[in-house]
């Protein structure tokens, strides 16, 4: 049985095809915002990669910010539940999932069976999200993918406000004007995101093992800063950004499997 999970996020569209809820056949990530052709491109790409057709999919599940708008979905489910399912699949003994996406941050608490038991989301504010990093990278004229290696070069990380993206932007400009080196500013930015997200994690409770999912998880600078803030190791997998789509695909498999067994 093939199932397709589609995660339509605020800045990227992701798709994962699973075979029998066990093997990832193909995946795709397209940078595009909700409401564009991004989701269709992601689905086309994942089907091309797998050599399968849409008709081969037993079930399609949509999740993410744009889940309501994807008409080809058989079911839709919140991205929080999907990240919980996906993270449990990759790390069976994980109890806390930190998902930092393009425009929000979420912390999930999983019970012993890997089910979502509790969660917290950031306030309506860009601080502590991927958007914060986008804004800061743009000021520094860096690519997002450069942030990790720049942060690694830091010798005296700068202090950046964790309160507000707009204020932090001014702070970064002031730091640069004062001659602070770019790697130190970048390390300060990563710590700023980590500090903001850590308070959200503490709201739910730090229960090991802890993993990171979502696009920002790819940034080692933020991961390291979060490990320091929380004082626990943070698990990471290169499928971090696909975790929502993976969870959606697994949800589709479980749903169909249950249907077939009743």
């Amino acid at each position: 049985m093939y199932t397709l999970g589609v995660d339509i996020g605020s800045t990227t569209a992701k798709a994962v095809i699973l075979e029998n809820g066990e093997r990832i056949v193909a995946s795709s990530i397209i940078i595009a915002t909700v409401g564009t052709s991004g989701v269709q491109n992601a689905v086309t790409e994942v089907l091309d990669k797998s050599g399968l057709r849409m008709e081969d999919m037993t079930a399609v599940v949509a999740t993410g910010y744009g889940r309501q708008t994807y008409e080809q979905a058989d079911y839709q489910i919140s991205e929080l539940s999907c990240h919980a399912i996906g993270a449990h699949f990759v790390f069976p003994d994980v109890h806390t999932v930190i998902d930092i996406g393009g425009q929000d941050a979420k912390v999930l608490s999983l019970n012993e069976r890997g089910q979502l038991a509790n969660f917290a989301m950031n306030d309506k504010c860009a601080a502590g999200t991927g958007r914060f990093l986008d804004v800061m990278a743009s000021i520094l004229n860096l690519k997002i993918s450069d942030l990790e290696k720049e942060a690694a070069k830091a010798t005296e990380p700068a202090q950046i406000s964790s309160t507000c993206t707009v204020f932090a932007e001014s702070e970064v400009i002031s730091q640069l004007a004062n001659g602070v080196k770019i790697p130190d500013v970048v390390a300060g930015i990563c710590s700023s995101v980590a500090s903001r997200v850590a308070s959200l994690v503490r709201r739910v409770g730090v229960q090991e093992k802890v993993c990171m999912t979502g696009g920002v998880a790819q940034n080692g600078g933020v991961r390291l800063a979060l490990e320091k803030e929380l004082g626990v190791p943070i698990l990471y997998d290169d499928k971090a950004q696909l975790m929502g789509a993976l969870g959606a695909s697994l949800y589709a498999f479980n749903k169909e499997n249950k249907k077939n067994n009743t």
């Binding site: 910010y65 929000d104 979502l116 509790n118 969660f119």
Partner: peptide, 28 residues
Amino acid sequence: LHQVNIEVDRQMVNYEQAATQLEAFSEL
């Protein structure tokens, strides 16, 4: 008891974040 904290105010134009929280809450 399950609990969730949803931020609201008098100038909300977008309820997407609240929708995600309520949907996830109902899935608990």
